[in-house]
């Protein structure tokens, strides 16, 4: 299996662990990912607010590049997936828009590219049976809530592979890995997305209730499919804790990191030390190897 790979800007920077774990897991599953050469930013959510047409034209350049390679385009980020697939649909549906987009681009786009979310590829193209065969360390003791976010399931004219109110693909994948998957009423409730940039107060209320519900149902970690969700739930978690005087301490892992653990991939290769909320306890419970605290290591290695 071979795909063009569109990591998107954050996977090259603040969410490297998603890129690392994606590559490691795909290699194990026999999925060849060829990074789309010279891809550009899809415009994220900001471009749509600023100029709608730009938000179609920016992904279109990537679609044109993917079309030349004649491979399906795999996107692990919910927002990148949404933007690429949406631009693709709009261009395919409207000859007028297709012409307008081609008028501003140096590379022509004929409308034949296909965009898939990484989760969709793993669950529906690779299949859970193949995933099951790759497991060497079933995730006993992992009580996980599947958090899908928004753009991976909505709108259904773009995200077409799962139910938009109560999706199951991530649930089933995590169950296949041997984890205990808890019912999670917040699985498709928005984390606040980029609102955190200009209105932390409002965004934190949205993020906080997702994390609190996860704790309430008894989870010891959250599985996510999107770098923006991850940033809100993971990177901002300590700020939420101090602002509202609550204790959360809930590790937030990419579904690929969780898959990697079950497949016996070394935690370092999955970037598990890059998550902002420490993942040590999760890694320990799965691998049985206790992490030596930094301080002790320094003392032992010193002198």
């Amino acid at each position: 299996m071979k795909y063009s790979y569109y990591p998107g800007c954050t996977l090259h920077a603040s969410t490297k662990e998603y890129d690392m774990s994606t590559r490691a897991v795909c290699e194990k599953l026999g999925i060849e990912l060829v990074e789309l050469e010279d891809w550009n930013c899809c415009g994220a959510l900001g471009a749509f607010s600023y100029n709608y047409f730009l938000s179609v034209a920016l992904p279109a350049r990537n679609l044109a590049l993917a079309e030349r390679k004649n491979l399906k385009l795999a996107a692990p980020c919910n927002a990148c997936f949404h933007n690429l697939a949406k631009a693709n649909k709009l261009i395919k549906d409207s000859e007028d828009l297709k012409k307008r987009v081609n008028d501003v681009m140096d590379i022509p786009y004929n409308g034949t590219a296909e965009v898939r979310h990484l989760l969709d590829i793993i669950v529906n193209e690779v299949g859970l049976e193949t995933v099951a065969k790759s497991i060497t360390r079933p995730l006993k003791g992992l009580r996980v809530v599947p958090y899908y976010g928004c753009l991976i399931v909505r709108p259904t004219e773009i995200a077409r592979f799962d139910d938009q109110e109560n999706p199951q693909s991530l649930d089933n994948l995590l169950k296949t890995l041997g984890a205990e998957v808890l019912p999670f009423p917040m699985k498709v409730k928005c984390c606040g997305a980029s609102l955190v940039v200009n209105d932390e107060e409002l965004a934190f209320q949205l993020t906080k209730r997702i994390l609190e519900t996860a704790k309430d149902v008894g989870a010891n970690c959250v599985a996510v499919t999107c770098p923006l969700c991850h940033t809100n739930l993971d990177a901002y978690q300590s700020k939420i804790e101090s602002k509202y005087n609550v204790t959360l301490g809930l590790p937030v892992l990419y579904f690929t990191q969780i898959m990697g653990l079950a497949m016996g991939i070394e935690p370092k290769k999955l970037g598990l030390e890059k998550n902002m909320v420490p993942t040590d306890k999760i890694v320990e419970s799965v691998t049985g190897v206790k992490k030596v605290p930094q301080l002790v290591k320094m003392k032992a290695g010193g002198k």
């Binding site: 930013c41 994220a44 900001g46 471009a47």
Partner: peptide
């Protein structure tokens, strides 16, 4: 928010990708 959006797309205009931080 539009100030952020503008800075965001300006970064794309200059580099082709966004320097988020």
């Amino acid at each position: 928010k539009p100030i952020f959006d503008k800075m965001f797309i300006d970064s794309i205009k200059d580099n082709g990708r966004v320097a988020e931080a």
